[in-house]
């Protein structure tokens, strides 16, 4: 019931002059979340840098972004002014929800940011390190309750990959889904679950205050500002990054795609965007063109494989 109910909250620049490229960015999530913030930061940067005169953000929340994605793919066909924000969570959600629309039905433009998944335990927990966690998991997989976001999301995938990497049957992972990082946080702080998973930024203030112990981060490099190893360093061969991207409508011409890519690249390199990344604690992982397409394909097949192993996708 904590679904966010709005398609509003637009910080309006009403009197902006009309440039050639006006964009409408769909955030396929409610206000306040990562995708919404990405869309609104893009809006701010595109307008402040004069790349686009008028940028509107719309929210279509629900189902790991697949509701918004389906709407975007069917309604914006051929529209060179329509953009959608998305990310890794969508890859998993498309598979678990058996969504009729996939990322093949839109035109991915570029990866913008990435965030590590943090593996945390309450400060009072016996588990001091990844080794302790692995030992507990091997002793009795069911006794380790993992709290994170919705089933099949990046948190769940990370839990499954960790189990797989240490030779524990991923279907035995006792994963408890919460409707968001916040609700999971409450369960972790309350000591009702063994270990928690969510984006580093969700837990940052609790880690800083010493209420949560950060065991490891999921990316292949350490996260600046946090004194924690990567899973790889701890001998668990897992590297997951929760990336966010921007895609354009299906059915646009190559010229239109090139023009949008140029705009997005200019935005990503702009001072406004870079300073916004810093204040929000996002890591710049900009990637476009063929390199992004290759990475996307690799992520899709890896995700499908692990979701099948966990048992969420047949």
């Amino acid at each position: 019931m904590n679904k966010l109910l709005l398609a509003a909250l637009v910080t309006g620049a009403l009197s902006a002059p009309a440039f050639a490229a006006d964009y409408t960015i769909m955030a396929p999530a409610g206000p306040g979340g990562g995708w919404d913030q990405t869309a609104r930061t893009m809006q701010e940067a595109l307008q402040a840098e004069g790349i686009s005169g008028n940028v509107q953000v719309t929210n279509v929340p629900g189902a790991g972004g697949t509701i918004g994605l389906a709407q975007f793919a069917t309604q914006e066909n051929g529209n060179p002014n329509a953009l959608i924000v998305g990310g890794y969570v969508m890859v998993g959600a498309i598979l678990t929800n058996m969504s009729p629309v996939s990322l093949d039905n839109v035109t991915p433009i570029a990866r913008l940011t990435g965030e590590a998944v943090a593996l945390v335990v309450p400060a009072a927990s016996d588990i001091e390190s990844v080794d302790d966690l692995v030992a507990a998991l091997k002793a009795d997989p069911g006794a380790v309750a993992w709290a994170g976001g919705s089933a099949g999301g990046v948190d769940h995938i990370t839990a499954g990959l960790i189990a797989q990497a240490v030779d524990v049957d991923p279907t035995q992972v006792n994963y408890i889904a919460y409707s968001g990082g916040g609700e999971a946080l409450a369960a972790i702080l309350g000591g009702q679950v063994t270990v928690g998973l969510s984006g580093v930024s969700e837990f940052a203030s609790q880690i800083e205050a010493g209420e949560l112990r950060l065991l490891a981060v999921s990316t292949d490099t350490r996260v600046p500002g946090f004194d924690a190893p990567t899973l790889m360093e701890e001998g668990v061969d897992v590297a997951v990054q929760n990336w966010r991207m921007v895609a354009a409508a299906p059915g646009i011409t190559d010229e239109q795609k090139a023009a949008i890519t140029a705009d997005v690249k200019a935005m990503a390199e702009s001072a406004t965007w870079q300073s916004a990344l810093e204040t929000r604690g996002w890591v710049d992982t900009y990637l476009d063109g063929d390199a992004f397409a290759t990475q996307l394909e690799a992520d899709k097949s890896a995700t499908e494989a692990i979701l099948k192993d966990i048992g969420l996708v047949q």
Binding site: K3, G62, T66, I67, T96, N97, P100, S150, A151, A177
Partner: peptide
């Protein structure tokens, strides 16, 4: 809508708008 614990769809009858459940 989608069952949070398993990601399975219940009673959505292939309507995308129902995936997220009925808005209170």
């Amino acid at each position: 809508g989608i069952d949070l614990q398993t990601g399975q769809t219940r009673l959505a009858f292939n309507v995308m708008d129902l995936l997220d459940g009925i808005e209170v």
